[in-house]
Structure formats: C-alpha cells, structure tokens
Simulated scan of single mutants.
Amino acid sequence: MAWLVLIVSGVLEAVWATALGRSDGFSRLVPTVVFGVAVVLSMVGLAYAMRTLPTGTAYAVWVGIGASLTVAYAMVTGVEPVSVLRLVFLAMIIGGVVGLKAVH
C-alpha cells in the first residue's frame, strides 16, 4: 500500500509543480488552487509512505516520479524542447527510480 500511495504522491508532485509554473507567481486563481491542493495531498502521501518505507528511498522515488512526469508533460505540450539527450537523461532518472524500488 505504501508504494501505491508513494506513486500517487509522485504524480501529484508533477501536478503541483506544473500548476506552480502556470500560477504566474500565484496571480492566477485556478492554477494556484490546484497547486495548493496537490502540494498538500502530495506531502501527506509522502509522509504516509515514509512510515513504512526508508526515508531516502521514498523521497528519491517521489522526486524521481514528479520530476520525470513534469519534464515529460512539458515536452509533450511543447513548453520544453524534445531532444535525444533530454530523453536519455529522463530515462536515467526513471531507471534510477526503478532501481531503487527493485533493491528495496
């Protein structure tokens, strides 16, 4: 159960990071509200997962999921450019997350 909650929390990290960027310094209401709700839920889920998972592993997986999805979303929507090197480095982050899960 902790792993599932951690994965959902990582997805919510990508949501709040994206919403933060779209909030234009908290001047736009909807992205600001999405940010606030997503950041609270993400942190609560991370805290829950850390009750049973090692802190370092849980945090690294949470950040890896959030960062990977944030970058992937930005590339898919055209906000950030796509390149072979960016995809390689993104794959390295994902590989690290999978590796941490595999050795736990």
Rank of each mutant, 00 (worst) to 15 (best):
K101G: 03
Y73F: 15
G64C: 03
W3I: 00
I7R: 02
T77D: 13
T55M: 13
A2G: 01
A38L: 11
E13M: 13
A47F: 10
V98C: 06
G96S: 02
P54T: 02
L85V: 15
E13P: 01
A72L: 15
V34E: 01
T77S: 14
Y48M: 14
S42M: 09
M92T: 11
I7Y: 06
L100N: 04
D24F: 08
A2Q: 07
V76I: 15
V8A: 14
R86V: 04
T18H: 13
K101S: 01
T52L: 03
T70C: 03
G45L: 09
V71C: 02
M1T: 08
E13F: 14
S42W: 02
F35L: 12
G45I: 03
G10L: 13
M50Q: 11
P81V: 11
I94T: 02
G64M: 09
D24R: 15
G10A: 12
G78S: 10
T18K: 11
W3E: 00
V76M: 12
G56T: 00
S23F: 08
P31M: 09
T52V: 06
V39Q: 08
L85K: 12
S23V: 10
V63D: 03
I94F: 07
A58T: 03
I93T: 11
G25K: 01
L4R: 01
A47S: 14
V39F: 06
T32D: 08
G95D: 01
G36W: 10
T77I: 14
I94W: 05
F26N: 05
L85D: 10
L29R: 12
T52G: 06
L87I: 11
T18L: 13
M75W: 08
V44R: 03
S9V: 07
S9P: 09
I94H: 02
I7Q: 00
L46V: 09
L4T: 11
T52I: 00
V40R: 07
L85H: 08
I94M: 03
Y73M: 13
S83K: 10
Y59N: 01
L69A: 11
V5C: 04
A17H: 00
V71D: 08
G36A: 07
T55D: 11
L90E: 06
Y59G: 07
G95E: 02
L90G: 08
K101N: 05
A38N: 08
I93E: 07
L85M: 13
A14R: 07
I65S: 09
A38E: 09
L87A: 13
R22S: 14
H104Y: 05
V34P: 00
F35C: 02
R86D: 05
A67I: 15
V84E: 09
M92K: 01
